[in-house]
């Protein structure tokens, strides 16, 4: 079989996952897209392992490890999202904007008024 088939499929899957990560609003959907990207990598690993006929089967072993780590990652990621949701009442990525430069954009995070004024004062002092 031509190696280009799995390689191109992996590349395209990766880019689809990339689009999901960048475009999705719900953070759980972002996590799903991350899974897609990981799987694309896994496909590459398996394909190259088969191609090289590695005596140690490094590609397949690594794939197994990646799957395991992905499982751990999804567990931790989900609990973080849950925590954020519990604290903020939302899990939307584009509303978690505490890193915004409030001087340039104004305050758009109503739940953080107090902290924003403190940051405003700091920003003015620094400017």
């Amino acid at each position: 079989m031509h190696l280009v088939y799995p390689a191109v499929l992996a590349a395209l899957l990766f880019c689809v996952g990339l689009y999901g990560v960048l475009a999705r609003r719900n953070s759980i959907l972002v996590l799903m897209s991350v899974e897609l990207m990981l799987n694309a990598v896994n496909l590459n690993l398996v394909a190259f392992d088969v191609w090289l006929r590695d005596a140690l089967h490094g590609g397949q072993a690594l794939t197994l490890f990646t799957i395991t780590i992905a499982a751990a990652e999804i567990g931790i990621g989900l609990s973080i999202v849950l925590l954020v949701f519990r604290n903020r009442g939302t899990a939307d990525v584009d509303r978690l904007t505490d890193l915004v430069d409030s001087l340039a954009h104004g305050t758009d995070n109503a739940s953080d008024d107090g902290r924003d004024t403190v940051r405003n004062a700091d920003g003015k002092a620094a400017a």
């Binding site: 990339l18 990560v21 960048l22 475009a23 990525v93 584009d94 978690l96 904007t97 505490d98 890193l99 915004v100 430069d101 001087l103 340039a104 954009h105």
Partner: peptide
């Protein structure tokens, strides 16, 4: 002042620029 406009606080924007 110009560059400050880029500080939207949106992680996806940052990541888009990075990638």
């Amino acid at each position: 002042t110009v560059v400050r406009r880029a500080q939207t606080g949106n992680v996806q924007t940052y990541l888009s620029a990075l990638l």
